[in-house]
Design a protein around this nucleic acid. Sequence first.
DNA 1: CGGCGAGCGGAGAGCGCTCTCCCGTCGTGC
DNA 2: GCACGACGGGAGAGCGCTCTCCGCTCGCCG
Lengths: 342, 342
Amino acid sequence: MERLPTLEDVARVAGVSRATVSRVINNTRNVDPQLHEVVWNAVGATGYVPNRAARSLVTRRTGTVALVVSDAESHDDDPFMSRFFADPYFGRVVGGLMSVLRPAGQQLALQIVGTEDARARLVGDLRQGQSDGVVVLSLPPHDTLPRMLTDASLPAVMIGRPADPVPISYVDLANDTGAALAAEHLVARGCQRVGLISGPVDVPASQDRITGFRRAMARRGHAFVPSVAGNFTHDSGEAGAARLLADHPDLDGLFVANDLMAQGALLALRDAGRRVPDDVAVVGFDDSSAALAARPALTTVRHPLEDMAAESARLLLARIDDPSQRVTSVIYEPTLVVRGSA
Amino acid sequence: MERLPTLEDVARVAGVSRATVSRVINNTRNVDPQLHEVVWNAVGATGYVPNRAARSLVTRRTGTVALVVSDAESHDDDPFMSRFFADPYFGRVVGGLMSVLRPAGQQLALQIVGTEDARARLVGDLRQGQSDGVVVLSLPPHDTLPRMLTDASLPAVMIGRPADPVPISYVDLANDTGAALAAEHLVARGCQRVGLISGPVDVPASQDRITGFRRAMARRGHAFVPSVAGNFTHDSGEAGAARLLADHPDLDGLFVANDLMAQGALLALRDAGRRVPDDVAVVGFDDSSAALAARPALTTVRHPLEDMAAESARLLLARIDDPSQRVTSVIYEPTLVVRGSA
DNA sequence: CGGCGAGCGGAGAGCGCTCTCCCGTCGTGC
DNA sequence: GCACGACGGGAGAGCGCTCTCCGCTCGCCG
């Protein structure tokens, strides 16, 4: 294995000192334009690429941002976490983050934390400087990680608000408004008997959708909204709809807290002989690919996840640049996308 | 910002030299068991965490593996790559990789390469030691990246065989066998007029499925298989089925090269008034979540993607450990999962 | 009982980079 | 014409770690 060119090599070729080459490459201080060019030529000639490790040893910057995904149910030795990773949610977030991080020259490193032990290790590694900052995704309710991160004063941004009040920046969707949009649409359609299939009751995003929906319905005179809770999976949507239908056969409208469950609900509705949207109107949430794949295509609440992820990356970078920056939050407004199901 | 404890600090607390602490932590050479304990206590007391940058500066190891995702169609400044990331395919691979890398103490860093320029930059960064090895995923046909990687003698493993012959290790599925499984199933069912919706004709995995299917059909006397090519998306499956049906109204069997397209095909079939599986039997490929979400649930070829990703991680780690290791390939055998659609 | 080798700890170099400090060379103002 | 400041380049320390080399202390054999 031949030795890779170092700054020293470039300096020798360019006939200048290491310091000058470093200055040219990093664009710090003014350097004679002529030398500037000489140096760049030498860089090209030698095929020099800065050594990341050496650089971060002295700058205390790694050029890496960690995406922390928490899966409380999985253990460290759990073979797969397909459940979560297979969800388009994950990919959309990654895509959004990358769109900002890549141009900024930052890498994205995946970190999965299952056990409490893994959390402690993670925070240790991060404090140590494994990465410059953290984007936290999909935490179980009442997770201690956000607190640990702020306590260690690590630059961190959450996607989705924390369940407990913690002074941490986050980007979120106005879930309540989105749910209200769904409610208004169903009511405007003339639905009289509207049901709700919610997500887990202890997840903030889910709670907001529930309260937002209930409140909007109440405001329109619908005091009682029969509901069941699912867990955001296709199957739980199917099961939830079946249960709801059994208890309330006169249902003519349904709000389902995400598209995957809505897709499942559509199946249960069909099995029960209900036509959508004629007998029962269905509104989903997320505007994910499942919404388009469903038949009829889902009327759903659009969730600009990619934009939100990109924004969280921007927030994080700003905070890394200037750690004194205030904790802040950015809330995105959802919109209703009307398709065939309602 | 207070200074983080270094090896030196631990050494002082333990009353030994830096070298000894290093030996204890890395478990190199024998160290007096008593000292061993003293050192670990000191580590605990100081809250010491090794500095990754400093370590990799001297070991030339980063503890990071890159997952390179190539998207020729996207540019460096393309806002999102939702198309790809939103596909469960990506998440399943990540999950499989993590299951091996995490226990091995390796990070996973995401790298996206669009332009040729980005490829060159990537190889430079990698040679430089940005990461210890590379898992290459989803390359466009005739991509030069595999060759660049082998030329730079970087440890690399591909998921899916390279389109051009390149001496690079890879993990793949016996796509032809899988397609043959589908063919046999359709024929055994009594289908007389079987169509094929394939993937892009220049993607190796897709080619293998086409040839495998054709050959198996021919072997059973079905000389002609009407077919159209899609691009693995839901919509292209729907469009493909519609086209096929228009040209060959007597179709009674259909093999679709992935589940997403098959799900789309199911819709087209329904729109055309065909019942599945009674009028037309449909077999998909991948056994992804879409297979279960479809109605009827898809009979499909199971693709153990998580296992394959995990295996590729193992291959890569082995190669990183011993770069002299031969180039190798591991081929997984698919199985048929029979559900409602055929 | 002396010599030799195995085993274990310490000293110190050095990985490749940045950045402070210093020095030389101008341009400018009085 | 001289002092002074501004500016650009070089020397060198040092980031935190690993690892080679060396030396000490044993145990064991002749």
